[in-house]
């Protein structure tokens, strides 16, 4: 019973969202508000749950040094919350101290991003591009060569963007213009395939939703 009710509710939400295809309407906006509200509430609930666990662990800790390790982020968090107050009030004026917490978050975020970009993307991509060139068969080597040349030309596309001198464009050599044109061609073709990938994912989601609705309607129409 609960399963059927769940499917009905899901189907109704789906149909309300699909009603946008007929034009922007009140029901669609309400459904959107419901989804956004639910997502915000869930994300914040999980975050609060995590912080609560951290506080409990800090209270249970007997060792003073470890307690301090637990207390530092909580203190920084409270400093961060000060930034939410209006600057006209006392707590708001203290908000400048919250810059410390924000700076910590930005510093760690930047370091994690650099490490992730280096170890997760840059090095594996360079290795994969290098490996493209060795393999059996002329056709396979040609394909890999095309991919490697495409990668280099696409990177050069960004390096050869036109620069302005005053209000005019800086004159560029024909080599620079050609490299940029070829790189742009590879880039646009690649973006086209990514665009098609996004459409395919959306269509897959649509097929799943519509088939669930069809399952629901099957007993009603007697098939």
């Amino acid at each position: 019973m609960q399963g059927t009710l769940g499917i009905i509710v899901g189907a109704v939400v789906t149909l309300i969202i699909f009603s946008y295809l007929l034009g922007d309407n009140v029901l669609y906006r309400w459904a959107l508000a419901l989804l956004v509200g639910s997502a915000i509430g869930y994300a914040l609930g999980v975050a609060v749950d995590y912080v609560r666990e951290w506080i409990v662990m800090s209270l249970l800790e007997q060792d003073l040094a470890v307690s301090i390790v637990y207390a530092i982020p909580l203190l920084l968090g409270i400093l961060l919350l000060l930034k939410g107050f209006s600057p006209n009030r006392f707590l708001g004026r203290m908000g400048i101290v919250g810059n410390l917490a924000l700076a910590y978050l930005v510093g760690v975020g930047a370091a994690v991003a650099i490490a992730g970009a280096l170890m997760g993307t840059l090095i594996p991509l360079v290795i994969a591009t290098g490996q493209l060139l060795d393999g059996p068969g002329l056709a396979a080597v040609a394909q890999r060569l095309v991919a490697a040349v495409g990668t280099i030309l696409t990177l050069l596309y960004f390096a050869h963007r036109p620069r302005t001198v005053g209000s005019d464009l800086e004159p560029r050599s024909w080599i620079s213009r050609s490299v940029r044109a070829l790189g742009g061609a590879f880039l646009m073709f690649g973006l086209g395939t990514a665009f098609a990938g996004a459409i395919t994912s959306g269509l897959t989601a649509m097929v799943i939703r519509l088939s669930l609705i069809a399952e629901l309607l099957r007993p009603l129409i007697g098939q």
Partner: peptide, 26 residues
């Protein structure tokens, strides 16, 4: 192969951008 070249170049560009921004902050 052409699409791989384009997307891989774009990804490398994005990653280099992330590296530069992160290093400027650090």
């Amino acid at each position: 192969a052409v699409a791989t070249g384009g997307i891989r170049g774009l990804l490398l560009g994005v990653v280099l951008g992330i590296l530069m921004t992160g290093l400027r902050i650090i």
